[in-house]
């Protein structure tokens, strides 16, 4: 949670990489600079995962042969041969440059366990996960947004207190447990939506998407209700009310248009988080996808595949944030290029 709060605080100031001087020019230059920054982050993520997975005292080949703590049956000669075949006998700098070069051409190596190219394995697993994450994101926005609007709109203090108490409970529940309890109640007791067994039909998507969406919905509810309260306390909503706009109109049109901005930033931050949540959700519901691939890759200590998944997560994060950063100026005149808030540069 802290992680998100700080990430949000960070993302509301001008972009992180490079010098974000005020009023540097046209929209094209802004977009180009953001694209360049996104590429820099991806390169850095690649370098960091390389350092973590290949440079630490661990040896990829013995990791692969050990396969989760088992004894290795390979002779030292066979190990040396494998090392040579995968290029692990080269000095780290050469390994890094070779792999980076290949990565730039879209080759992230081959899975050590299946022998399938990593990019192909990810591409194959992406559609069901994208479906799941997309459905979860929509659910989270509707659910979290609904709770936030209702919690700030209601005049019943009891209901307001109840709705305000929901988000902390939402983030306190382990995703794997929520999924299992939902299956238990909905599928086994009510006999609805029997979702286990890897089916990808619409009915089979309901429970996994709901499970994956809950923590995100709780965050959205939290940040959006904060945003709405802040806007409702500002003079412009009072003015709108005084000019005769209905309470609902002030709430949904005037307060929401400003109060939604921090939430939009949050959505950019949590989109990558959905991919991590998919690891748990896909395991619980036995669905195919990126999450299943990740869990098995970690179990088998399949380094190239794990690196591929981490890079994919970084790509998703960067793209989502890029999209949000490009959308934000359209929705908020205050952050339009050349009109940045003066307080924005403060740490």
């Amino acid at each position: 949670m802290g992680r998100h709060a700080h990430a949000v605080a960070r993302r509301t100031r001008p972009a992180g990489f490079g010098t974000a001087g005020p009023g540097t020019g046209t929209v094209t230059r802004y977009v180009l600079r953001r694209l360049f920054q996104a590429l820099l982050v991806l390169w850095a993520a690649y370098t960091a995962t390389f350092a973590l997975l290949y440079l630490l005292p661990s040896d990829p080949v013995s990791l692969m042969l050990r396969g989760g703590g088992e004894e290795s049956f390979a002779t030292p000669e066979q190990e040396a041969e494998l090392r040579e075949r995968w290029g692990f006998d080269q000095p780290p700098a050469i390994q890094y440059l070779t792999m980076l070069g290949l990565a730039l051409t879209g080759d992230l190596g081959t899975s050590l366990t299946t022998g399938q190219p990593v990019v192909a394995a990810l591409a194959e697993a992406l559609p069901p996960t994208a479906q799941l994450a997309g459905a979860a994101l929509v659910t989270a926005v509707l659910l979290g947004g609904g709770v936030a609007v209702a919690a700030t709109y209601t005049r019943s203090p009891l209901l307001a207190r109840f709705l305000t108490a929901l988000p902390p409970v939402g983030v306190a529940m382990p995703t794997f447990w929520v999924g299992l309890v939902l299956v238990q109640v909905v599928s086994f007791q009510w006999g609805l939506l029997t979702a286990l067994g890897g089916e990808t039909s619409a009915a089979g998507l309901v429970l996994p998407a709901l499970t994956l969406s809950l923590p995100v919905a709780a965050l959205i509810a939290q940040v959006l209700s904060d945003g709405l309260r802040a806007e409702l306390a500002r003079p412009h909503t009072t003015t709108a009310r005084a000019k005769g706009a209905s309470r609902a109109r002030v709430h949904l049109a005037h307060a929401l248009s400003g109060g939604v901005l921090p939430t939009l930033t949050l959505v950019g931050v949590v989109t990558g988080e959905l991919l991590a949540g998919a690891v748990v959700v896909e395991t619980v519901f036995s669905r195919p996808g990126i999450g299943r691939i990740t869990a098995t890759a970690v179990e088998a200590q399949d380094l190239p595949l794990v690196q591929g998944v981490v890079l994919l997560a970084a790509v998703v994060f960067v793209l989502a944030n890029l999209l949000v950063d490009l959308l934000l100026p359209l929705l908020d005149p205050r952050v339009r290029i050349g009109a940045r808030r003066p307080g924005g540069a403060a740490a």
């Binding site: 993520a45 991590a276 981490v310």
Partner: peptide, 19 residues
């Protein structure tokens, strides 16, 4: 910044792969 671009759980899993 770069580390925060990777979801926490995935980062943990990458570390577990090595450890």
């Amino acid at each position: 910044d770069v580390v925060q671009a990777v979801p926490g759980l995935l980062l943990s899993m990458a570390v577990i792969t090595v450890l």
